[in-house]
Amino acid sequence: MDKKKRTRFLIVIAIILAALLVGVFLTADPLKEEEPIRIVMKDAVLHEEAQVNFLGIRPVNPAVISAYTVTAIIFVFALFTRLFVIPKFKHNPGRFQLLCEQAVGLFDGLATSNSPHRHNFLGAYVFTAGTYIFIGTMFELLGVMAPTTAGGHIALPAPLADINGAISMGVFSYCVILSGGIAGNKVKGVLNTLKDFSLPISMSFRLFGALLSGALVTELVYYYITTSFVIPVFVAVMFTMLHALIQAYVLTMLTALFYGEVSETHTEASSEEQ
C-alpha cells in the first residue's frame, strides 16, 4: 500500500468512527431515566432486581442460568470430543490431543503431587473445578443476553460472580475434602477436616470477591459513556482472563492441598518421628 492509499484509508476509517460516535450520542434517549450508579453496582452484587426466570419454575439470579449454559456448552464440547476425537487419539499427539492431555495431565499432576496416597477422585474433581471456573469466567466475555423478569435484558455474568454459585463451589470443595478425610482416616479424618471449619467460607468468599471485582469494574467502566471505548478491552483482559486463570489455580490448589493433608494416613511410627 503506497502513501496516498494509506492516507485515504485512514481518512475513511476516521470518518466512520466519527459518524459512529455522533450516532452514539444522538441516539441516547433523553426521556429515559438513567439508573443511578449505586443501584447498578448493588444489583450487580446482589441481583435483587434483575432476575431471570428459570424454566418457568421461579425467578433466579442470572448466574444460575450462566451456570447451566456453561454446563451445556461443556457437555456439547465433551460429547463431541468423546465421540469424534478421543477414538482417534494417537501415540504421537496432534495439537488438540496435546491440549486435552495437557489439561488432564495438569490437574492429575496437581492431585498426585499434593495427595500421592489417594488422588484418583481428587484428580477428576480438580479437573472439573478448574474447567468450570476457567470456562465459567471466560463465559462472561461472550455477553450473552437473557430476558429479566422485570422485562429488560441482562448480560449473563460469570456463574461464580454470584454469591450462591461461589458458596456452592466452596461447600462442594469442602465436601470433597471431607470425603478424602473419611476415606483416608475415618473419624479422625472427619475431625481433621472439621478443624478447618472456616475453609468453605474462605474458599467461597475468595472466589466470589475475586470474580465479582472483575464484574463490578467492568460494570463501572460501561456505566459511563466516556470510558466505554478502548478501556473495556484492557479491563476485560485484566479482570476476566487473569481471574479465570488465577482463581482456577487457587481453588484447585487449595482443594488438592487440604485433601492431601486430611486423607494422609498417619501411622504410629510417623507420629513418633514427628
Partner: peptide
Amino acid sequence: LNIDWQQILLHMFNLVLLFGILYVLLY
C-alpha cells in the same frame, strides 16, 4: 447478601452434573 439455599442447591446440582459429564466423557 441475597443468599438463597434453593439457588445454592441448583448450583450444586449443576456442579455434580458437570462433574459426571466431564468425568465420563473427557477425564
